[in-house]
């Protein structure tokens, strides 16, 4: 009897959604992907997980407290001057969120796509491509969020966040991680070889070094400033710095909009690409 009810359900579950908009790509079960990742968590490489987190912490220790002693206070634009460690902490928090999100959405996704053939199996069920895309992106964003929270747990007690409002940096980190995860998975879905995957690292390092992470952007000529302002990590750093230093103004909304667009376009491209790869 139980069985009969369940037969109904596999088919009934799918037919309940049948007439909804987008039912061919979305079954409303993206969280099952997160469930899968939780199950797989115990077999993951904890050293790799940890190393992604400690990297920004090491930068904070060496640059913020080591180099920071030589640098003294810093001020950007017209804002009040703050200690060097306080200045770079928001940038490193943004980088933490990015690192966590990128790691899962690029290398792990690449492996599942080309070696594990995991998505093949999943898309043979009543799941849709958007379920897979969204689920994997949410998982990657959770990792970014975890890194950001971990980083906050270090910098807040150290007094590097002047106002309690600075804790809003955590929800902002969700947005940042979501954006990078979405964009990262979209790019990865177009990658065909390990060589191409290396480009990700090749782009990440300079972006980390030059996005206003360690010094204000006004040291650059204006054309270069424009280029850097277009980069996602600059947007992330700039948003986190404004929040953690308490400079709330309308420019924050532009950063938010930037990430909303990044998230949406990443989702659209990933879904299209997964459909093209596995369903066509």
């Amino acid at each position: 009897m139980i069985l009969a009810a369940a037969l109904d359900s596999a088919v009934a579950i799918a037919s309940r959604r049948a007439n909804r908009l987008g039912s061919s790509v979305y079954a409303g079960r993206s969280l099952v992907m997160v469930e899968r990742s939780l199950m797989a968590l115990k077999t993951s490489n904890w050293f790799a997980v940890l190393s992604g987190f400690v990297e920004p912490v090491f930068y904070l220790a060496s640059f913020g407290f080591g180099l920071g002693g030589l640098v003294g206070n810093v001020s950007e634009g017209g804002s009040a001057s703050v200690s060097y460690a306080t200045f770079i902490a928001p940038a490193l928090l943004a980088t933490s969120a990015m690192n966590g999100a990128i790691y899962d959405s690029t290398w792990n996704v690449y492996f599942k796509m080309h070696f594990g053939k995991i998505y093949h199996g999943i898309l043979a069920t009543s799941m849709g491509a958007l379920d897979v895309a969204l689920g994997e992106i949410v998982w990657a964003l959770l990792r970014g969020l975890a890194y950001a929270i971990g980083f906050m747990c270090i910098v807040y007690p150290l007094g590097l966040v002047p106002s309690t409002w600075g804790l809003l940096a955590i929800p902002a980190a969700v947005l940042i991680a979501f954006g990078f995860a979405s964009f990262g998975m979209a790019i990865t879905s177009y990658m065909k070889s390990f060589q191409q995957m290396d480009w990700v690292n090749f782009i990440m390092l300079p972006m980390f070094l030059f996005s206003g992470t360690f010094y204000p952007l006004d040291v650059y000529p204006s054309w270069l400033q424009t280029v850097i302002q277009a980069l996602p990590l600059y947007q992330a750093i700039s948003m986190e710095r404004a929040i953690m230093l308490g400079q709330f103004d309308a420019s924050l909304l532009w950063h938010v909009l930037y990430f909303v667009v990044m998230i949406a376009s990443g989702l659209v491209f990933t879904t299209r690409r997964l459909t093209a790869l596995f369903m066509r």
Binding site: S9, A10, A14, R36, S126
Partner: peptide, 16 residues
């Protein structure tokens, strides 16, 4: 997890 992809409940899947 494969049963979950179809949206089936954990309770049902345990027996299955």
């Amino acid at each position: 997890i494969y049963g979950r992809y179809f949206g089936l409940s954990r309770k049902f899947l345990k027996g299955k």
